[in-house]
Nucleic acid binder design. Structure first.
Length: 366
DNA sequence: TTCCCGTCTG
DNA sequence: CAGACGGGAA
């Protein structure tokens, strides 16, 4: 039976031609990114973890700062969990910081000051999935192993006009095999980075620049002028509108009451202005009632005033309207995970993006 | 408003 | 295999 698999396989001769054209293009067009000047496996690891879910322009501003603070595995392992998280604040997907820290700790506990050098061993550390293990092993250690990220999936989905989601099932296998075929005798570090670079700068999700692509002559999507139809992805779940009420309690010194979010769930262990859970509009009660519930959970007593400011924020598939109310806090002191802090102090501990947004919106209304 | 993305967990 | 997890670019 014909599944189209055989004709999707890239033969050795075509693979060599594709790799040669790609590498020529990469030598000319590669972006000059800071981590590409590093040969330190630890620094490359940090860059790869940051780049997993965060855009290059953001990582560019944060990578060196992280390394200044935690210059090697030893210092990262010795660091306090909350300091690592604070250094990560704003980058999102905070489990990455936790895994990074835990991996460093595991290595230090084994008496190691360096990463293992093979993808198979890296894969055993927290936060190392197939992609990151392949990326670090090939870029830092030169191992002949693929590193298939979303860019690579998209490039091959278009080149081969793959009929289904390239991250799943048979198409996923074809992408992996294609990347491996191109690896051939090329420098794995350059080849992998060139593939990702092509996806990041030319074969982009929207409006690909096919006029700049070294592969247009062989690209099945381009030959049909159907670049926009690839990669095929399943429909996304619609975002849900929710509301969250936020308490702004101030003391006479101008500090505000902040709380640390619990472990697990979103924004785990980051600091925020105390806020209710995300409530669908249908079930949300009056702000004063919802905030009274929150006060009870936090062991406080609040007199709730009218709304001060409201901001919109999105996380995962929630569209959040965060409505901040001034409250008078009548309880003394602050239990664990609650603290009276000047905004700058709170910022240093690591704020959620929503709270940073709220704080920025506040002064304009006061 | 839509879309993007690695790893882990259920 | 499906869903959780963030923030920002297009």
């Amino acid at each position: 039976m014909s599944t189209g698999v055989n004709q999707d396989r890239i033969g050795p001769r075509v693979a060599r031609a594709l790799a040669a054209d790609l590498l020529d293009w990469y030598r000319e067009q590669a972006r000059d990114l800071p981590w590409r000047h590093s040969r330190d496996p630890y620094a490359i690891w940090v860059s790869e973890v940051m780049l997993q879910q965060t855009r290059v322009e953001v990582v560019t501003g944060r990578w060196q700062a992280f390394l200044d603070r935690f210059p090697d595995i030893e210092s990262l392992a010795a660091a306090d969990d909350s300091d690592v998280l604070a250094q990560w604040a704003g980058l999102g997907y905070y489990r990455r910081a936790k895994f990074l820290h835990r991996a460093a700790t595991e290595l230090a506990d084994r008496g190691l000051r360096d990463l293992p050098r093979s993808a198979a061993e890296l894969r055993l550390l927290p936060g190392f999935g197939a992609y990151t293990a392949g990326a670090v092993a090939s870029i830092a250690f030169g191992e002949r192993v693929t590193a298939v990220d979303g860019n690579v999936e998209r490039v091959f989905a278009r080149l081969l006009a793959l009929p289904s989601d390239p991250s799943r099932g048979e198409s996923r296998r074809i992408v992996g095999d294609s990347a491996a075929a191109l690896l051939g005798r090329a420098d794995p570090k350059d080849l992998n980075q060139a593939l990702m670079e092509l996806g990041a700068t030319v074969c982009t999700p929207r409006s690909p620049r096919c006029d700049l692509c070294p592969w247009t002559a062989r690209c099945r999507a381009h030959s049909r002028d159907a670049q926009a139809d690839y990669p095929r992805r399943p429909a996304r779940k619609a975002a849900v509108d929710v509301v969250s009420f936020v308490a702004i309690a101030r003391d006479s010194a101008g500090r505000m009451l902040f709380r640390r979010r619990p472990d697990g769930g979103h924004n785990a262990r980051l600091w925020e202005l105390p806020s209710t859970a995300l409530l669908p509009h249908e079930v949300a009660g009056e702000p004063s009632a919802e905030l009274a519930v929150l006060a009870g959970e936090l062991g406080r007593k609040w007199l709730v005033h009218g709304p001060l400011v409201s901001v919109r924020h999105s996380i995962t598939h929630h569209r959040i309207r965060a409505v901040a109310h001034a409250v008078e806090d009548r309880a003394p002191g602050a239990a664990e995970d609650l603290a009276w802090l000047a905004p700058q102090e709170a910022r240093e501990r690591g704020l959620t993006a929503a709270t940073a947004k709220l704080l920025a919106a506040l002064p304009t209304l006061i």
